[in-house]
Write a protein that binds this DNA or RNA. Structure first.
Lengths: 152, 152
DNA sequence: ATAATTCCTCAAGTAAAGTTGAGGTCAATA
DNA sequence: TATTGACCTCAACTTTACTTGAGGAATTAT
């Protein structure tokens, strides 16, 4: 527990709130690159606290680990990211988030129409095509509207 | 391919766009309850088309299979759901969706503040607490703000 | 009647994001 | 110095939502 310029994995765990196993997993996925001391134990830079915090925030924004790894590859390794770095990345976050919000709002609008009609009939209900067809490539109803014989 | 009042699994697959294996999987999860013919093959009611379509829509709204199974348990088995059924369920959908949208909009607001400041410093950045702390119980930064020695 | 489909079950595989455990080593402390 | 606590690797397990494959039976089409 001596507080030197580098951190053990346990110290990093305490500082980030991540479990030790999660940090090892993130190393495996290329999110952090600790060095090893003489005894083979991981030693992290203090800047890795910020790096892992970035991971947590990015996950909150809906990015996968591999997407986050790609974003981190564009960030400096041992020093703080520049304002330009952050501007670029935050724009990506914003676009990602906007798209998700818009999709959900479209869905909500269709649902509102459908609460009113209460049909659920498959004949014309907007909900049965509500999703972004392109967003779920390969799955979902192909021609649900073909169900012409159903009462209600 | 004779068009009788019941459907084979392949016919149901054609009508819903779901794969045959997915329909079997959904049966296993309790979403549909086909009967068997003399030869042991599954026979579905025509109303199961609507039932499975409901599953697809509910997934679009972010419900898990087991949550959908719970909702379907409250629906009539061989006949069409009533308007009251649909009203109750669509309110649940709406609440679920509203919560997700609100969470993302809060996140977006914080991001906007953060694009302006460009700090990423951990000292005061709103993003590092942006998520619904209660929504990710058991994970996430516990006291990231303790990182007091970092430049930038 | 026979071939071609479709269907059956059951086991295993896939991806994501980690966790858990076994067996053993390193480091800080009394 | 001895011991406790932190760390190491590697393999296997967890969950969700399915898919894939093997080996075989039922149905449909010719």
């Amino acid at each position: 527990m001596k507080s030197s310029s580098v951190l053990s994995i346990g110290e990093l765990s305490d500082r980030t709130g991540l479990s030790v196993s999660a940090i090892r997993f993130y190393e495996e996925k290329g999110l952090v690159h600790p060095i090893r001391n003489a005894g083979g134990q991981r030693r992290f830079l203090r800047s890795d606290i910020r790096r892992l915090s970035f991971v947590l925030v990015a996950q909150e924004f809906g990015f996968s680990i591999s997407e986050i790894a790609d974003q981190l590859k564009q960030l400096p390794e041992g020093r703080a990211p520049t304002k330009a770095d952050w501007t670029r990345i935050s724009r990506e976050f914003r676009a990602h988030l906007d798209a998700r919000i818009e999709k959900m709002i479209r869905l909500r609008d269709k649902l509102d129409g459908c609460i009113g009609c209460g049909c659920l009939s498959m004949k014309s209900c907007a909900l049965y095509n509500a999703g972004d067809a392109a967003a779920r490539h390969g799955r979902g109803p192909r021609y649900l509207m073909g169900d012409t014989s159903d009462a209600v």
